[in-house]
Design a protein around this nucleic acid. Structure first.
Lengths: 244, 244
DNA sequence: CAGTGGTCTAGACCACCTT
DNA sequence: AGGTGGTCTAGACCACTGG
């Protein structure tokens, strides 16, 4: 025996859900029907359904057929890191306008987060992000010089920085995101087209490689009427992320 | 039939572990032994063991006896749901002051999220949360009547609502959290001791059971100088949560 | 090697939901 | 009333772990 039957069944059902063959809100076949289709007994079928239930993919109850609750996205890390990816997942058109990019010594707070010496340089950029052509988020990013160098020559009005860096082999492995709220300053107000003092959702993010070395420290500010951050978590431990 | 046998078994084994009858690092009886002791077949025994495994209480593997890993599980889900738990984890002292609790028909937006009919009642409460005696967060919670009833008689100035509900067997299985920023309204300003219009971090949360039925819809507002939300995610998929 | 858990079968009865 | 999932039984074979 290779893979257990119940794992094969769970994978098959996940594929049908993800592929849209069974849409959100629609009912799964009954356990009896699945038994017949896969020529097996109820044991493996129920084990597979329990796995999907744990993942939050399906719900239901006694006497009722199981119902598809969600069609979970595949790559939680990437979709959480990349504004571009998230926008595409939620059906919006992402855009961007570079405001500035510079090679300079970052201020001491940023340097401390990136574990830099006072003399070290970093690549900093300010970029306005658009959703369906409306200004939705302002990002102030700082990359350690080694990683940021290539950005100086890249076309930053083209698309996702994360996709670019990953394609160049940069090992973006994990990140810590901290959320709070701030009042819009003058630059925020100008670029996001809100009043000075308007409440903005702030995300500060430290990204590091698999050796634990910091690569990026950034601060993003969201217009709350155009963009929010959503996290789904369940008791089984799985978590998924979106922003829209 | 009243309580299913596998639940009774799980409760009995939990009690033995929590009571120290089977210490951390010690082995559980074999499945066969448990079958004999409780005069049942392997089905219910395995279902009970699977529940303990889910809770992180026991470990083990093919060919090996199950081993007690911990007497009290610390679930990532719970630590993300519970302000009390998070405060304790970060070394702060949590506190709370109940502002009001009511049984009423919620407004239509809340009712829609909880999938309620216009005539349905729900339990709503407003509670100020403290960190080291300073007002840090204001929560406006709504529970479906079935779940919220027990809160009307509970001492809500005592501690965690999530711990209370879980101990009563309420199946809190998954949640979706949405973050943005809002300006403080008059109630926020009074209780959190900030100016009207001050930026606050807002979290809206929908919690549901494993059948996919909504149980709770809440809105929390954080003073950004006293409390933030932090999420760590990595390419390997697992995610962890804290707020401080 | 024997013991153990992982998996699967083929039934059965009950409680609940829909009709 | 019939369909459906929740639960339970009493077997069976396999893969892995341990002495």
């Amino acid at each position: 025996m290779g893979t257990p039957l119940h794992r094969t069944l769970a994978a098959e059902l996940r594929a049908r859900i993800r592929g849209g063959e069974i849409g959100v809100g629609e009912m799964l076949p009954s356990e009896a029907a699945l038994c017949e289709e896969f020529e097996t007994s109820r044991g493996p079928v129920r084990q597979a359904l329990a796995a999907l239930r744990d993942e939050g993919l399906i719900g239901g109850g006694q006497g009722r057929r199981a119902v598809v609750l969600d069609a979970v996205p595949a790559q939680p890390f990437e979709s959480f890191q990349s504004f571009t990816r998230r926008a595409e997942l939620t059906g919006h058109t992402p855009g961007q306008r570079l405001h500035e990019i510079a090679l300079r010594r970052p201020d001491s707070a940023v340097a401390a987060n990136l574990d830099l010496e006072p003399a070290d340089f970093a690549v900093q950029l300010v970029r306005l992000r658009l959703l369906d052509d409306r200004p939705a988020m302002l990002e102030r990013m700082t990359f350690v010089e080694q990683v940021g160098r290539s950005l100086l020559e890249a076309d930053l009005n083209a698309g996702s920085i994360y996709a670019l860096l990953t394609s160049q082999g940069v090992d973006l492995h994990a990140a810590r995101h901290t959320f709070d709220a701030v009042a819009a300053d003058e630059l925020d107000a100008e670029l996001l087209r809100v009043q000075v003092g308007h409440p903005l959702l702030r995300e500060r993010r430290l990204t590091w490689n698999s050796a634990g070395e910091p690569l990026e420290f950034s601060e993003d500010r969201y217009r709350p009427d155009l963009a929010t951050v959503t996290i789904t978590n369940s008791r089984s431990g799985q978590a998924g992320f979106t922003r829209e």
